[in-house]
């Protein structure tokens, strides 16, 4: 199967007055056509930087290196801004977290949608208008004809997010990157938006890179999940495999941090501490200062991302013992 996105060994660094901040350190991602890959991690772990670099949207202050960067079959490593512009919007598009700041406040949402069709598909204004109203209807906006003339501030948060989704799917792209599309929304609206995204993705067969910090959101959306920690992929596996058998201590921590409505936990289980300072990362495994299972080797040597079970990649020294523990449980 051909891939919608292939990134190999991506490194992003930002030179600052405090020293070089290595935001992304050797991340490899690939997404099949029509697949939904979720990238999960805490704020500051580099997931947004990864998504922006995937679109080549970072400005010149960042130092970006990658061995391979292929979007929809096009090798974009050496692409100029102009070449990327032909790709963005038409074949790859993005959905941002805060719809209010992603939309232009002084332009009606209809005209902003028209722009997509006029710019990328070279439609006439009249055709664009028809397509825009249809696109608004497709994302479940009531009275699309009237909403076409609304300004972003006249719509609710959920409606604005629907407009962004309509815009992202407008040219039927092959890949969409959704950066925390539901974080700013209420739980009931979040449920609506996730349902809509899933429906649109299945209808159009678009590949989706879904970025979130909430494993419970991700487990409802993704086919495959990659957990990111301090600029590196800590674990990557098929959704059901990762949720049923998390191998990395960080993933286990993230999973138990999800507060279910029906669990009878007396106290919450949480991961102690915070992400390491990106300008001053620890030696050895980046997670070891917060890890309850860290041994001596963790403080000295960095673990590598290895395939432990087929399709299940983990970056941890102490894997064998967990697996045997689980084996005993199974017996």
């Amino acid at each position: 199967m051909s891939k919608a996105l292939e990134i190999e060994n991506l490194k992003v660094a930002f030179p600052t007055h405090r020293g070089v901040i290595r935001a992304v350190e050797g991340v490899s991602l690939n997404i099949d056509k029509g697949e939904c890959l979720a990238l999960v991690g805490e704020s500051g772990c580099g997931k947004s930087v990864t998504s922006l670099t995937a679109m080549k949207l970072l400005d010149d202050t960042a130092i970006v290196r990658a061995d391979k960067h292929i979007i929809c079959g096009e090798d974009v490593l050496g692409f100029s801004d102009k070449q990327m512009e032909a790709l963005r919007g038409r074949r790859v598009s993005m959905i941002f977290q805060d719809a209010l700041s992603a939309l232009d406040p002084v332009m009606t949402v209809g005209r902003q949608l028209d722009e997509v069709f006029i710019r990328h598909l070279r439609l006439s204004k009249k055709e664009a208008r028809e397509r825009s109203v249809a696109a608004l209807a497709a994302v479940g906006i009531p009275e699309p004809g009237a909403r076409y003339r609304s300004f972003p501030h006249e719509l609710s948060g959920g409606m604005r997010q629907r407009v962004l989704i309509a815009m992202a799917f407008a040219c039927e792209p092959e890949l969409i990157i959704a950066d925390e599309p539901t974080t700013a929304l209420d739980v009931t609206i979040q449920a609506q938006i996730l349902e809509l995204l899933k429906k649109m993705q299945q209808q159009s067969g678009t590949a989706l890179l879904f970025i979130s910090h909430d494993l419970s959101v991700v487990s409802n959306m993704a086919d495959r999940i990659a957990v990111m920690y301090s600029g590196k992929i800590a674990e990557q596996a098929q959704r059901d495999e990762l949720i049923a058998r998390p191998l990395h201590p960080y993933t286990r921590g993230l999973l138990s941090a999800v507060i279910g409505i029906n669990d009878k936990k007396d106290s919450f289980i949480h991961i102690k501490g915070t992400l390491p300072d990106p300008a001053d990362k620890p030696h050895g495994c980046y997670f070891c200062p917060r890890c309850s299972e860290a041994g001596e080797v963790c403080f000295v040597r960095q673990p590598l991302l290895k395939e432990r079970v087929s399709g299940h990649y983990v970056r941890c020294h102490y894997l064998r013992c967990h697996r045997s523990e689980r084996g005993e449980e199974n017996e």
Binding site: V187, T188, A191, S219, N220, G260, I261
Partner: peptide, 15 residues
Amino acid sequence: SAVLSLDGARERIVL
């Protein structure tokens, strides 16, 4: 029902 769970299989009432 809108509270997401990890199994994701539960029937959800979407308003």
